[in-house]
Simulated scan of single mutants.
Amino acid sequence: MVPPRPRSQKSPYPLWFFLPAAVIYGVFFLAPTATSFWYSLTRWDLTTAEFIGLENFRQFFSEPFLVQGLVNTLIYAVMTSGLKTVCGLLLAVLLTGNIFARGFLRTVVFFPVLVSTIGIGIAFTVMMHPTKGIINVALGTLGIAGPGWLTNPSLALFSVALVDLWKGVGLATLIFIAGLAAISTDYYEAARIDGATRFQQFRRITLPLVRPATITVVTLSLIGGLRSFDLIWAMTRGGPGFSSDVVASVIYKQYQAGFYGLSTAGNVILFALIVAIILPLTLWFNRREVAQ
């Protein structure tokens, strides 16, 4: 006998209960998003708007420095996300072990997350000065010629990424610590009884069971990297030249120059880029998690 189909549970809240949240979401997200899509198809200023179709997008992808900003955004996001994931996991494993002053070290690692991004950018700009910065001065005492961290076009973007790692790895470490704390010690005890080494325990137990935390760190770091602006602007203004420009800094520069339609098209491209990367990645992570 086929059991009766269960009735869907009715929500205890009436529909009007969700109305305030829906209004706020519509006014502050849906409406500005739709407006941005419309203005990306126009040449507009503060008073008028002329519809020009996809001309802004064509111009965006035809300008070499705009395309360079798009490429830099992808490089920056992948690099910072990968570094935060690897370093955050290693630091979390270290800070959950039996080490001296563990609580103090956790505070030290997390402290940069609480500091203003602009403040960090200004401080590291001074520290990375090619001749007077403390980093190159310290290297000089060792007989090493320090590079132009922010003045060398081939190093500027990577230098900012390293500062971003220093600032953001604390949050990744905190997420990984929470993930490691949720793993039962019974797994490790059984592995030790079977003669597993520390590396084998890390590979066979820690990595698979900390997967939800890894997904969270990778997703948040990628989104943050793709949207990054304040640290890059505080340290390099996108320079030297356009070597460290990202999409967000390009958008800001176009607004400053009065090319509002082109900058709005850049916003749409950035939005589409984030969705095109994060949505498939999230779906892939979810399928892998369900399969396991």
Rank of each mutant, 00 (worst) to 15 (best):
T85M: 08
A178Y: 01
R237Y: 09
T73P: 01
A101N: 09
W284R: 02
L279D: 07
Y188T: 06
I135D: 11
I223F: 01
E189G: 07
V2C: 09
F229L: 02
R5K: 15
L270D: 03
L114M: 08
Q201S: 12
Y252E: 02
V218T: 02
D194Y: 12
W233Q: 08
G148S: 12
S159V: 12
M79F: 15
A49W: 11
T131D: 15
L270I: 05
F229A: 04
W284I: 10
L273A: 10
F242P: 04
L139K: 02
G170C: 01
I99Y: 04
F111H: 02
G261A: 00
M235W: 09
I99D: 02
T35V: 14
T264M: 12
Q256F: 10
P14L: 00
K84G: 05
M79S: 12
P280M: 07
F110L: 13
Q9D: 08
V268K: 07
M1N: 15
L209K: 05
T80D: 03
I175P: 10
T107M: 15
R203T: 15
F158P: 01
Q200A: 15
V113Q: 07
T35R: 13
W284F: 13
I177W: 10
Y187W: 11
G88K: 00
R211S: 09
A156G: 02
G266V: 00
G195F: 01
P14K: 01
G224P: 03
S81W: 03
G266R: 00
Q59M: 15
Q68M: 07
L90D: 10
A77N: 03
A181S: 12
V23A: 10
L54N: 05
P147G: 07
P153H: 08
D186R: 13
Q256A: 08
Y260D: 04
F271Q: 02
V250P: 04
M1Q: 05
A156F: 03
F104W: 12
V23F: 14
F229V: 03
L91H: 13
G261Q: 00
V93Y: 11
P112Y: 03
Y25V: 09
R227A: 08
S221H: 07
A21T: 11
T131H: 13
P32G: 00
T131N: 12
